[in-house]
Design a protein around this nucleic acid. Sequence first.
DNA 1: GCGTAACCGAGACGGTACGTCGGGTCTTCCG
DNA 2: CGGAAGACCCGACGTACCGTCTCGGTTACGC
Lengths: 202, 202, 202, 202
Amino acid sequence: MTQDTEDTVRRSIGARRNPASQEAILDAAEAVLRELGIAGFSIEAVARRAKAGKPTIYRWWPHRTGLMLDVYKRFKTARAFPDTGSLRGDLIGFLDNQLVGFWKNSLCGTVYRAVIAEAQTDAGAAEALQAYQAERKAVARQMVERARARGEVPEDADATLIIDLVVSYAWHQLLLGHLEEASTKTEAVVDTVLRGVPGYRA
Amino acid sequence: MTQDTEDTVRRSIGARRNPASQEAILDAAEAVLRELGIAGFSIEAVARRAKAGKPTIYRWWPHRTGLMLDVYKRFKTARAFPDTGSLRGDLIGFLDNQLVGFWKNSLCGTVYRAVIAEAQTDAGAAEALQAYQAERKAVARQMVERARARGEVPEDADATLIIDLVVSYAWHQLLLGHLEEASTKTEAVVDTVLRGVPGYRA
Amino acid sequence: MTQDTEDTVRRSIGARRNPASQEAILDAAEAVLRELGIAGFSIEAVARRAKAGKPTIYRWWPHRTGLMLDVYKRFKTARAFPDTGSLRGDLIGFLDNQLVGFWKNSLCGTVYRAVIAEAQTDAGAAEALQAYQAERKAVARQMVERARARGEVPEDADATLIIDLVVSYAWHQLLLGHLEEASTKTEAVVDTVLRGVPGYRA
Amino acid sequence: MTQDTEDTVRRSIGARRNPASQEAILDAAEAVLRELGIAGFSIEAVARRAKAGKPTIYRWWPHRTGLMLDVYKRFKTARAFPDTGSLRGDLIGFLDNQLVGFWKNSLCGTVYRAVIAEAQTDAGAAEALQAYQAERKAVARQMVERARARGEVPEDADATLIIDLVVSYAWHQLLLGHLEEASTKTEAVVDTVLRGVPGYRA
DNA sequence: GCGTAACCGAGACGGTACGTCGGGTCTTCCG
DNA sequence: CGGAAGACCCGACGTACCGTCTCGGTTACGC
């Protein structure tokens, strides 16, 4: 985090995007979310904090959801997606690292809740979230593909349903503020879902 | 819908709540949601529409989420909760009538999405939603209780987990705008979850 | 001051004005003015403080100016209007006791400023103030009559002008919040005005 | 009066005050005062009339008194302050042009009464009025300085008292709605005050 | 090597909505 | 009928952000 490392005024660097400004804006957005929460997150607040002009923000993030998602993604990149050798292990790891466990880092959870909330109001946000979800779930379904290759699940297993059930559960607990409880039940959830897949054998 | 059936000005009826005003406000809230959507839903707009003073609304609904929830509940009341004789039938009916199918009535879905979104921003809203959820889920768990009594599921079946998985799936699809798809998969979801319950027999 | 001497709820005493309520309202009005100043003086605040219903206040004081004037008059009654034997002495006493000195009691000044302010906005208040002024000045002009009888001023001395100049000066300093300064200049004011009266001899 | 000469929407002209908006707001304020009187004067009404946002008004006039004073000043500027060659002439001209006679233009009197009233309630308003008064009186005292230079009054004549007495009288009559009567007495007032100055000779 | 296009900060602009306060009216219930 | 209570509609308050705009200034690029 390079917050306020630069006291000097940022200026234009010509007819192209100034990376320093973008960094400063993302830093500020993160800081605002951390300190004021979702309710206090406004373009004005971010601009104030980043010492940036509002139009600069609007130029690059027409919807504030996009800005939130970018903040979210900066965290996400680090997280691994390990192949544990079994679908059960993969799914538990997925829940623990990518979903529930990840969101328990308060900022990540806060941001993602905000993104989901925004998507209920704003069509652009909904689209952005849907695109992000589609991409993430496609990646997640690869876990099922691997299991299929290993013979853990039959060829016709519904990968979409499996992933959806797991992700849905995580969302639900996130949105109700029950992450603590959820993190104690990851195994039970995964086991229930897997037992429900016809032809599954550990 | 008794919108504007009365042209005459509503007055105070003494030192107690005026039911006509409450009705008018709920009617107006519903109409605003229907016509302007979530984004256009504001206390100001409702007050204008209901020809009511803003303080009158704030007096009875300190948080706008409460108002939305009340609009939501007016619809909900009508919906039945039939005992079909089997847990599978009950859960499918639950999904079709109380959740997915119910929300496909665009207004209901819109309102509930808004309530959930609000709860991510506002603490009071979160509380209201949590209370509502707790109550609804307690009712839903009675379906499992009945199944237990019938011997469909063992004594130690995790009713909370069963209901949570079903509700979570519905929420997820609602929030992503995938209700259409969801309504084609209700049986698959219920079957998967029930097969996942150890000792379940249809 | 009989503030809150009664804890018991005041009730109707039949189809006539309840003096206890009137007392309580005047006490409350005074207390509100003392504690919150003019800006905080509202019928609501007085009603809250007096544990009275708003309609009860409106019934007896249709304009809030009337209420303020009644508070003002409760103080005024006590003040004497002595005959010092000379016009100069009378006028100085008038300024010191009835005007500047009286208003320096912060509550009295506050109330009177409020009354004057109100009269600029509200026609009813203006009328009430004008009536009160006419009466007070008529009394004050008697000082000049007495001086005329003593031969201090000629028969054709303009009593109205003399009183007006003195009262005007006091008002002006009151309204500008310069009462302190004014109280050091009462003698200079009176002397200047009296010297200005043709044919005056001490 | 340049009311609504421009149908086109006023926009920002960059990070600086837009004179067109300021003009429009002052015009609107004047119009509202003229048409609705003091009681109908609200920031909301002015904003509506000026087709300006409320924050734009609050940005430049934190207290509504300041706005009234600016309306008042727009009239005042035109009025002359002539040197008639004698203190008597100067003071009579002062009363007739700057005070009583000026206020008889109903709008001017209305506005100034409102300003004075406001100053009794609001601390900021009081400050603004005091500042304005101090400045105007300083200018007025120059009439006495000139008379001193001409030898009309002795060196130690109390300029402050002379001006205060004249201004006070005008205020008093303004606030009681007696301007008509006052305008017939300007000479008597000035003569009385001047005769009261020790060592004055015409 | 010079004009110009796009960027940057700053902040004013017209708006909408917020949540609160008080005004004055009304009705019910109690004594 | 008087009085307490408090709900009602209404309008204004002062504030926060919205998204847009124009400004003055700063490069980097293309002609």
